[in-house]
C-alpha cells in the first residue's frame, strides 16, 4: 500500500525489486534461506534449519512480492479523487488505509489468492529448508514427491487430490469474499 500511495526517493528501485520478486524462483529462495540458516550461516545459531519456522520464512519471502506487487497495482488503480474523498470525510490515516483496502477488495483478494497459490504448490524451497522430515516438516507437496519416487503412485495421487481440494476450497472462499456485494 505504501508503494502504491507514496512518492519517495528509491520508490522505482523498490518497485523493480518487488516486480523481480514476483518472478523469483522458489528454489533460489530456498537456497538463500538454507545458506542463511545453515549451521555455519549468519543466522545458524538460531537452529532454525529443518524446522517449520524455516519453511514459513521461505514461503513468506516467495509470497510477499506477489501480494505486495498486485496490491500496489490495485491501490494505484483506485481513482485519485476517491482517495481524496475518503480523507475529506474525516478519515484518520489508519481509517483511510483500511478504507482503501476495502474499496480495492477485488484486487487485494486477488493478491492474496495469487500469493496463496504460489506457496501451496511450492516444493523446492520447503524441501531444501524443511528437509521433508516425517511428522515435522513434511507437507503435501513434498510428500507427493517422496511417494512418487518410492513408486507408491496411488498414495501420491490421493495426496494430490487432497491438495487440489484444499486449493479449490480456499479459492471458493476467496472468490466469495471478493465477489460478495459487487455488481
Amino acid at each position: 500500500m505504501f508503494l502504491g500511495l507514496r512518492r519517495f526517493p528509491g520508490r522505482n528501485l523498490l518497485i523493480t525489486l518487488v516486480n523481480t520478486g514476483m518472478g523469483l524462483p522458489p528454489v533460489v529462495v530456498g537456497l538463500f534461506v538454507f545458506l542463511l540458516l545453515a549451521r555455519s550461516g549468519p543466522l545458524g545459531n538460531l537452529n532454525l534449519l529443518y524446522t517449520p519456522s524455516a519453511m514459513v520464512i521461505a514461503q513468506v519471502i516467495i509470497a510477499l512480492p506477489i501480494v505486495a506487487g498486485v496490491t500496489m497495482a490495485g491501490i494505484q488503480n483506485l481513482e485519485e479523487k476517491l482517495k481524496y474523498q475518503i480523507l475529506a470525510l474525516g478519515a484518520s490515516r489508519f481509517q483511510y488505509l483500511f478504507k482503501l483496502l476495502q474499496e480495492g477488495r477485488l484486487i487485494v483478494l486477488s493478491a492474496l489468492a495469487a500469493g496463496f497459490g504460489s506457496i501451496i504448490s511450492e516444493v523446492g524451497a520447503v524441501m531444501m529448508v524443511g528437509g521433508n522430515i516425517k511428522g515435522q516438516t513434511r507437507v503435501l507437496t513434498t510428500a507427493i514427491v517422496l511417494e512418487t519416487r518410492q513408486g507408491d503412485y496411488s498414495l501420491a495421487i490421493a495426496l494430490g487430490i487432497i491438495l487440489l481440494l484444499i486449493a479449490l476450497f480456499l479459492n471458493i472462499l476467496f472468490t466469495y469474499l471478493q465477489q460478495r456485494r459487487l455488481s
Binding site: 481513482e79 479523487k81 476517491l82 481524496y84 474523498q85 475529506a88 470525510l89 474525516g90 478504507k99 476495502q102 474499496e103 477488495r105 456485494r181 459487487l182
Partner: peptide, 12 residues
C-alpha cells in the same frame, strides 16, 4: 470540514 467532488465517487 467536508468536501464533495464533481463525480459522486460512491464507495462499495
Amino acid at each position: 470540514i467536508s468536501m464533495t467532488f464533481q463525480e459522486p465517487l460512491p464507495f462499495q
